[in-house]
Nucleic acid binder design. Structure first.
Length: 409
RNA sequence: GAGGAUGUAGCUCAGUCGGCAGAGCACAAGGUUGUGGCCCUUGGGGUCGCGGGUUCAAGUCCCGUCAUCCUCCCCA
């Protein structure tokens, strides 16, 4: 049997409903905050991700799905959305329209990782970006919006927040850490040795005792962050409090992508195993320029739809279902005609396609969790599946009038 | 990329020392020839993940492989 590819999944049934529910809910919130949708390609030039996400990051080094197309172009399935969004912002010359831009996107991302609960090779994100605003109020508005999403979906997650300082501060601090930890190469764990090259900030996060010990004496980020950045961060925290957003400052919070500056944040849950980050983002003030656009401050976030799905409870059944059952084969066509009539009257209905004994059709209807059954014979009998009561009608019009009356109540 | 656990009916899972492939639920038919849920009876269902090996004999032992789950890692 041919099976689905490792790390890929079929989303169907209740899960498909959850997926759509999340996307609809989040899109609705984006609309409330006046973000505009951008539908981006799934395939981009490899160098876009090398130059934005970072040449040395795990995502670029070992997790991208890359291939050559027939024209010999080096391409990649997108591992994240921000890079494409920035590329489009520059390529479509949105900056030329002046003011600022608020965009959102949604769709599949691809990373070749070891699958795990809440981690797939094809996964889905929904995210938003703001281009052209350096004001701290943009950070506050964005984070408050994500907070609203989390609250609207009724998800238990805490907000952790930190600042990395401006681009230069971050670079200087990384170098300082690299210099410091290089003295202890023989004492660092294997993964931290790699982090020395890739992302020295992550060493501070290591759980190995010996690494923790060395980290204690390591340079502290506050010494490398400008007063402006610190003030900015404190102002953001103050605004968040006033907006009613709860947070926890985590000085160890570092994002894995190279482009972040200043504000970084994650919404984290401990209810779905090790992959607890449900939504995350931050500011990336240098990325647009770095990719060939005009200097443009920017920020954004993305949420993992599969992880949100793991956190939302069973959806409530909203609409009522009516199943039409012809009592024998003589009335099938009449039943189908009735179904058409109901649907033309905007009434949701299921026409019983399974043939067999009335008993087996009733069992099937029950499995569909139908609310009402209409038995079709020379008359029409409406049965309430909860109470078992039946009403007899002799014309389709009378029946529909009755149903519409019921729905109005 | 590293470590660990698991894989038997549609689902959840038993299967002892290597000796005829099992249960519950689900499904089908009937009890009630025009009515679901509860109950009773009967029935249909199997590439024991896949491929090798050992053996008179393998779901069971050995090797490989694939997949799922968990941890590390990474990240949404």
């Amino acid at each position: 049997m041919i099976q689905k590819v490792r790390g890929f999944q079929d989303i169907y049934g209740e899960n498909a409903k959850k997926y759509r529910y999340i996307v609809e809910t989040v899109r609705n919130i984006f609309n409330l905050y006046s973000f505009q949708e951008i539908i981006l390609p799934y395939v981009e030039d490899i160098s876009l991700f090398k130059r934005s996400v970072g040449e040395e990051t795990d995502i670029v080094q070992k997790e991208m799905y890359t291939f050559k197309d027939r024209g010999g172009r080096d391409l990649a399935l997108r591992p994240e959305g921000t890079a494409s969004c920035v590329r489009a912002y520059i390529e479509e010359k949105m900056y030329a329209q002046g003011s600022y831009h608020k965009l959102f996107y949604e769709g599949a991302m691809f990373r070749y990782e070891r699958p795990q609960a809440g981690r797939y090779r094809q996964f889905h994100q929904i995210g938003a970006e703001i281009f052209g605003v350096s004001s701290v109020y943009a950070d506050a508005e964005l984070i408050q919006m994500v907070d609203k999403i989390v609250k609207t979906l009724n998800i238990q997650a805490r907000l952790e927040i930190n600042t990395l300082g401006d681009f230069n501060s971050r670079k200087l601090y990384s170098q300082a850490l690299r210099d410091y930890f290089s003295q202890y190469k023989d004492k660092l764990c294997e993964t931290c040795l790699k982090r020395l090259d890739t992302n020295p900030l992550r060493i501070l996060d290591c759980k190995v005792e010996s690494c923790k010990e060395i980290s204690k004496e390591a340079p502290v980020i506050t010494d490398y962050i400008s007063k402006e950045s610190k003030d900015r961060f404190n102002e953001l925290l103050d605004i968040l409090s006033k907006l009613g957003v709860n947070y926890r400052v985590n000085p160890g919070l570092v994002r894995g992508l190279d482009y972040y500056t200043e504000t970084v944040f994650e919404f984290i849950t401990d209810k779905i195993g090790a992959q607890g980050t449900v939504a995350a983002g931050g500011r990336y003030d240098n990325l647009v320029e770095q990719l060939g656009g005009p200097p443009t401050p920017a920020l954004g976030f993305a949420a993992g739809i599969e992880r949100l799905m793991l956190l939302i409870s069973q959806l409530e059944k909203k609409d009522i279902l009516i199943t039409i059952i012809p009592i024998n084969s003589d009335y099938i066509l009449k039943g189908l005609e009735l179904s058409k009539f109901l649907r033309d009257s905007e009434i949701k209905s299921e026409f019983m396609l399974k043939t067999g004994s009335l008993k087996s059709m009733m069992k099937t209807a029950d499995k569909f969790r139908t609310d009402f059954v209409i038995f079709v014979s020379d008359k029409l009998e409406l049965k309430d599946m909860k109470s078992g009561e039946q009403l007899i009608f002799y014309s389709e019009e009378d029946l529909i009038d009755h149903i519409k009356g019921e729905k109005a109540v």
